[in-house]
Design a protein around this nucleic acid. Structure first.
Lengths: 200, 200
DNA sequence: TTTAATATATACCGAACGGTATATTATTGG
DNA sequence: CCAATAATATACCGTTCGGTATATATTAAA
């Protein structure tokens, strides 16, 4: 009755952690089984002993990648109490996007969405769910802010969420492909002003 | 000395036109030579007689895809004279993004950027150049508007360009992955207000 | 410590990959 | 219309693909 983590469960986790950055950087089609064995130091037999197929690894890797971003943002958001300050965590974090090590290969939602939307239904669904989750959590922060009378009561939570996400993802794309952070800076400056504008 | 288009030149163009949508939908890694022969009805021999390799087809296909979008936007922009109305062509066009047939597989810049930024230097460069071109052309419209006294003189062209592009690309990603146009509508409504706000 | 169960490595499969040498067909200038 | 040339098709190359049956090694319970 002890709380033992089975060997395979640890290996499974190990595989996910090691392969997740590769999937995020190279995409599903661009990542080969050889990539997976190289980055883990394991053999195909070991990987296929713990996952049904390449799809299953990719799906788990996406969850892991998205989970990391979510957790990171959550910690930054919960450092503050005021709703406006909480929302400001987004431009603050994404301003330094290119410097956050585990986000070097890009935003998992953005990368997965653009590859999978026309090619991989399972991955597409995961990306869509992640996006919905993110949207809901921004909306909730806005609603909370309205309740706490920190945000203008007529503010539309869904609209704000979509604008915030659009600006972030669009700016990330530009920053990644140019290698510059200028686009990120400009977009996040703008987003900051936008958020301060809904303060009541 | 006649203005004859050689057979191979026509075939080359034919290959580009037929394969461009496939590359845009499936990405470079996700598109196989088999896809290329299927969609063209030609054989490998024919394709490799007109292109050095798969890379060369993909690069030409990107130029074609980007060229189409550019041409389309240009025509919509030049329908108007007033600078504000010209900028408004962007939200107007991208609002119906999902319904424009040749853009069904998504924005070529967005698709190519997110795939190539960490994997394919040549494609990455093409996407970066395309982005820079787009940015310049928005900036020029803004500058023109300032000169014509239709846009507030203190408006920063580079900033506006980045915001416009971020909103469009971020919203496209969301619309593509969810299959909804709500995100596009909300973001384009916002962009419209934004553009009207810089009217002098 | 022995043993049964579990987990990993090895060696291999057929198919698909990108690419090419060569044969065949189509085009075009004389 | 014919010959030279250019363009396309055929048949094949070695490699890598995702995946698996089986042997070996490791783990964990008795």
């Amino acid at each position: 009755m002890q709380e033992t983590i089975s060997k395979s469960e640890r290996t499974r986790q190990f595989i996910i952690e090691k392969t997740a950055p590769v999937f995020n950087a190279k995409g599903f089609a661009g990542t080969s089984l050889n990539d997976l064995t190289e980055v883990t130091g394991l053999t195909k037999g070991s990987i296929y002993g713990n996952f049904e197929n390449k799809d299953a690894v990719a799906l788990a890797a996406f969850d892991y990648n998205f989970g990391r971003v979510t957790l990171y943002m959550k910690s930054k958001i919960q450092e503050k109490e005021n709703a406006i300050e909480r929302l400001l965590a987004y431009p603050k974090v994404y301003r330094d996007f290119l410097k956050i090590p585990f986000l070097q290969p890009g935003c998992p939602i953005l990368n997965t969405s653009t590859e999978a939307d026309d090619t991989h239904p399972l991955l597409r669904q995961k990306a869509a769910d992640a996006l919905a989750f993110w949207k809901k959590s921004i909306e909730n922060q806005v609603k909370r802010g309205i309740e706490r009378k920190e945000i203008k009561p007529k503010t539309n939570p869904a609209e704000i969420a979509i604008i915030i996400m659009s600006l972030i993802e669009g700016a990330i794309m530009q920053a990644k492909v140019t290698g510059r952070s200028t686009e990120l800076k400009v977009a996040m400056d703008f987003l900051e002003k936008l958020i301060r504008d809904i303060e009541s």
